[in-house]
Design a protein around this nucleic acid. Sequence first.
DNA 1: GTTATCTATGTAATAATATAACGCCACGTG
DNA 2: CACGTGGCGTTATATTATTACATAGATAAC
Lengths: 133, 133
Amino acid sequence: MAHSHPELTKNQSLVFGSLSDAGGPLTAYAILDALRDSGFRAPLQVYRALEKLVDYGLVHRLESLNAFVACSHSGCAGHDTAAFAICEKCGLVSEFTPDKAIAYLKDWTGEQGFQLSRTTIELRGICKQCAAA
Amino acid sequence: MAHSHPELTKNQSLVFGSLSDAGGPLTAYAILDALRDSGFRAPLQVYRALEKLVDYGLVHRLESLNAFVACSHSGCAGHDTAAFAICEKCGLVSEFTPDKAIAYLKDWTGEQGFQLSRTTIELRGICKQCAAA
DNA sequence: GTTATCTATGTAATAATATAACGCCACGTG
DNA sequence: CACGTGGCGTTATATTATTACATAGATAAC
């Protein structure tokens, strides 16, 4: 699941590049706009590339923002158990891997007989910088 | 934050009722369709009611489904730290309150100086029933 | 009692996010 | 070559959510 991946195609590289350059989350349509000069014309070009990139573990989808962000730990181990802290002031997104919290969630799913395939953990609040300001 | 609430208005009652009756998540437009006979005509009627209901802690938004579900613990304490296990086969949604996992997440936010206001925890997988089948 | 204000509501229009359906081309394998 | 697979381009459409503006009722102030 996720992790190693073949060479990226042209479109995948462009999409991944625009996310990396942004250094933060972008919506699919923001990516589309960023790549018009590179020849992108339609949303599907972006969505198709994103699907693969998420699959490969290079990009995360932020459900609560309907946006996408390049993975902080390229080729990251816990890609499917990453968590995100999202600042509601400045938009900063910090990715981390809450192993112990995940362990407790897995305890619960184990007890329930729930076969866990993917976790979404997104924290909303104010980052240190913005709180200080 | 959340919890006690005034009397529900007519629209709020209708929306809450349809979510309760459903016993599972509904999209805003599914609610709209369910309430056409009750006089609903436009999405905004649904979204406005949902906003209040979420505010009051009676309804949760499931970010990964773009859907809404009545809170399992009416007037639930940990409304803003609830977690959900979502079965990808049958659509069953189980709400629970992973206190220990939340505690670890709060450890992290505390260390980072991140002022946490809201958590989203959604687990995808296969429920016990569907796994057995 | 009238004015001001606040909340809820109704309606139309539109924005933002995401997918379906089709056909084409490049590539590798038998 | 014939064929299957995967990526790509394009059009159209589906789904989710909000903006903008008008109306109606309750309440408090004067």
